[in-house]
Design a protein around this nucleic acid. Sequence first.
DNA 1: AATGCGGGGCC
DNA 2: GGCCCAGCATT
Length: 354
Amino acid sequence: MKMESSNVQVLPNYMKVFTPARVRAIRRTLGTWYRLNKRDLPWRQTRDPYRIWISEIMLQQTRVAAVIPYYQRFFQQFPSIAALAEASDDALLSAWAGLGYYSRARNLRAAARKIVEAGAFPATFDDILALPGVGPYTAAAIASICFDAPHAVLDGNVMRVLARLTRNKGDILSSRTRAALQESAQTLLDAGSPAEHNQAMMELGAVICTPRDPACEECPLLKYCLARVAGLESELPIKGRRAEIRRVRRSLLVAIRNGNILLWQRAQDAAMLGGFWELPEPHQLPEAKTAKLLHKFSHAITNHVYDFHVMAVRVSQEPSTLQWTPLNQLSALPLSTVTRKALLALRVLPYDTT
DNA sequence: AATGCGGGGCC
DNA sequence: GGCCCAGCATT
């Protein structure tokens, strides 16, 4: 009898949640909750692979509220995959400017060209995964939502839901924990309706099982949640330490002459912000004569915080890497967010075009 | 396994 | 003003 009780304790946590009867109950409860409570989002009106693909790429690391204005506009500019495949660099980056992670836009066009060449949108998990910019999460999302493929999605929302549901105390940044959670997600997946099930899991994480102050009292899975029973819902999931923030002081130079402003364009294949237009910095204009400080602002990128000083300068002769750009053409160019912030503050740009 | 890639919301 | 969020590609 001692053996029996120790056997029960040895069971991994996910086994306590994922008994066949509980799995069935969780799937049904979750599905009912989702059908009654799901938000009405633009990409939930369709199963068209082009639409779903674009929405999933835009939603990588990006909040729903930030994506919505870009989503509608994107299809006006690129009504078909073929149109996207032929997009110019400027059109592509302009459509994405402000969304961040610009390699997503570049990969989008590369993938569009692959799809055009293949003649149809890939319809299996493996073929979708082979598209540039598509990883395991996005492939599972598209395959399940558009093609009913039984692949469980594991994004940040689902990791949080599952870490709490199974009281998994592993670091979700580690690949071991992620593998365990992927296994949990696949076990729980309702293969009869993977599109709805996957979206229900993500929706639960987005609106109920939130990072801070989860709304457990409203959660359809409350009675199955091992973290809640243990009072650990606010401690899970565990996330390891990240790199410390570094502060860096930088200057931007504003030279305006005859209705033109001096700018430079980053190389299209640059690792960071490739193809974007920028204000020059002092090392690019060594002989510029500083006139005065026009504006100060800060801008955070990943683990850096930049404190920018925007200076008005006069230039006698400009390096060939810089270009005099007509002020009235600025809104047609992909401007980096830093440059846009500076030019908006100086009223060189009349209003935010993004 | 570790790092870089934006931008925005919350406290 | 600092802290948190988190897919994919690259190394």
